[in-house]
Every structure is written in structure tokens, then in C-alpha cells.
Amino acid sequence: MNIYRLIAFGVAAVSAAAMIYVGLYQSRLVGRLLCPIFGDGCEGVADAPFARPFGIPDGYIGAVLYAVVLGLLLAPPVRWVWIALFVLSTAATFANILGVRDMMNFGSYCFYCLTTTVLSPVLLWSVWQLR
């Protein structure tokens, strides 16, 4: 496995874990969302109306996206796999940027969402290097 694939795999795994945790809170399978730095901000953001596009907790949407990326990173390195990885990584980056905008408008921040936001350009860069 080359270094860029390893970086992408690590970033996608951390992001998937963060989003699964948020999704479990959003569906109340976890009673409290521990939030480093931002106190109750994580729960406020996770419970905000914008955190449920189409009625689906965005934590689960993000977790599925990153799980698909993880699966594609394990697939043979053919052209269509790279295109799918690039499209999903780009979508994750834009979705995270929109999420930060929503958090800014809301006036509260989620540590886990910001973590995936910081990591998404790293994922996009590492996938780009796989071309």
C-alpha cells in the first residue's frame, strides 16, 4: 500500500468513527455526546435542524460516505475506483465546508464535525495523489 493510500485510509477511518459517534447520538443510541473544547456545542449542532437533511442524521450520512471511501481504498487501483474516490472526497470537502457555514450561522460548533472538516482536504489531496 503506498503512502497516499495509507494517509487516505487513516483520514477516512478517523472521519468515519467521528461521524458514527455523532450519528449514534443523533439517533439516541448514545445518551450524551462528549465534546472536547466546545462543551455542549456538539450536542447543539447534532440536534440542530440542519443536521438532519432529508430527515436522516448527518452523522450516519457522513459515516456511510467515509465507509464507502474505505471500501474503495481497499479495491484494486483501477481508473473508475480513483474517479469514485475523487468524487466522494470532493463531496465530503464541500459538505464539510457547508457544515461549518451552518455552524457559524447557528453560533455553536461540534468538535467531531470540525475534525472531519480539517481532515477532508487531506483526504482529497491524498486521493488526488493516487491518480
Rank of each mutant, 00 (worst) to 15 (best):
I61K: 12
T117A: 15
L73T: 12
P57L: 04
Y21C: 13
M19P: 05
A46Y: 01
G71Q: 14
Y66W: 11
I37G: 00
F54R: 01
R101V: 10
V127R: 03
Y21N: 12
I37Y: 09
M104W: 15
Y25W: 05
F86S: 07
Q129H: 10
L74H: 11
V87N: 06
V68C: 06
L33M: 03
T116C: 11
G71F: 15
P57M: 05
L124D: 02
W125Y: 13
C42R: 03
N96D: 10
G107D: 05
L65K: 04
A67K: 01
G23M: 06
G41N: 13
A18V: 13
V122R: 00
L70A: 09
D102L: 11
V64D: 12
L74F: 14
R28N: 11
F38Q: 04
L6T: 09
G55D: 03
R32M: 10
Y109D: 01
A67I: 13
V64W: 01
A18Y: 04
G39W: 01
I97C: 10
V14T: 08
A46G: 07
G59I: 01
P53C: 09
F54A: 13
D47K: 09
N2C: 11
P53K: 06
G62Y: 00
S120T: 03
V127P: 09
A18F: 12
S15V: 01
I83V: 15
A95W: 02
V30P: 07
G62S: 03
V30M: 08
Y112C: 09
